[in-house]
Simulated assay, not measured.
Amino acid sequence: MSVKLGVIGGGVMGTAIVSRLIDRGTYQNTDILISEPSLQQQQALHHQYGVQVTGDNNLAATAQVLLLAIKPQIFDRVIADLTRLERPTQLIISILAGVSIAQLERAFPDRAVIRAMPNTPATVGMGIAAISTGTSVQPQQLDLATQIFQAVGEVVTVTESLMDAVTGLSGSGPAYIAIAIEALADGGVAAGLPRPIADRLALQTVLGTAALLKETNLHPAILKDRVTSPGGTTIAGIAKLEQAGFRSAIIQAVIAAAQRSRELGQ
């Protein structure tokens, strides 16, 4: 059995990465082995993606690159069950929140280790992942990890000390934006719009604004000023946002999530 990419965990994020890697041709489906305890999920993964599947984590652990995509709560148990194989050229990539590089290097003492934090827009190829490297990662291994996560969006490299901040911003951020979109739509309904139209207007407004900022590289404050006329409707709305502490609430949400990430990692 030839395995270039082994994945332990057939959940949403692991399969999102696998599906995009196959679509982009980074790996052939026959090069990938996913270890997943659920027989039903194994069958679904094999049927949908044509990948090799197994219920034995040790088979996935023989791959050239091993992606850990399990819940962090079961990390110790999964690692304890792995057979200790001599694989000094193997690259370990973990997307487990709160599991440090030090923990990963203790579990895989002879391997190169990379810790990554992708976010849920990765499932549609619009995510962003932050990656941190362990002590023995070679440049070509960092390039490979970058290529893997570019399949599901953009990639930034950060020191591990910033991973909790990444978690608070981009990891948890989709939930904040979802609330903002929901609130925009609710505001539209409160102002008299039918719900389907309000939902569509809110979603496309956020999507279009993000695309505009990215394409033009404008600072958000500049775009805000450009659509804010003296004595107009937008400044009236912004005044209410400031009165309600909207900006501060977003900042505090990121800080609180980052702090919670630090607590979970201890």
Results as ranks from 00 to 15, higher is better:
G187H: 07
G98K: 03
T83V: 15
A178G: 05
F108S: 00
I95Q: 03
V155P: 06
S136M: 11
A151N: 04
L85S: 12
L142C: 10
V189K: 11
I114Y: 06
I93T: 06
T157D: 05
G187L: 07
Q103G: 03
A102P: 05
V99I: 15
A129R: 01
T146N: 08
D164H: 14
L82V: 04
M126R: 14
I148M: 06
P109Y: 03
R106C: 10
I114P: 00
S100R: 07
L104P: 02
G187I: 02
G173W: 10
A180S: 09
G153S: 04
A178H: 11
A175C: 03
G134K: 00
A112T: 09
L96I: 11
I114S: 00
A129S: 15
S132N: 02
V158M: 09
I114K: 01
L144M: 14
V99S: 10
A178D: 09
V99Q: 00
R115T: 00
I131L: 15
T167E: 07
G171P: 05
Q147K: 12
R115F: 12
M117H: 00
S172Y: 10
L91T: 04
R106D: 10
L184V: 10
G153Y: 05
P121Y: 07
R115S: 08
A185T: 09
L91S: 03
T167Y: 11
V99E: 02
S136I: 09
R106Q: 13
G134I: 03
V124N: 01
A97P: 03
G98D: 01
T159V: 14
V166S: 02
D110T: 15
Q141M: 05
P118Q: 06
R84E: 13
T135S: 14
I128N: 02
L82M: 07
L142N: 07
V99K: 13
N119F: 08
R87A: 14
I148S: 07
G134C: 01
V113M: 04
V158H: 00
G171Y: 08
Q147E: 15
S170W: 11
Q150E: 15
V124T: 10
V99H: 03
D110W: 14
A97S: 08
A180D: 02
V137Q: 00
G168K: 06
V152P: 04
G188P: 05
A107P: 02
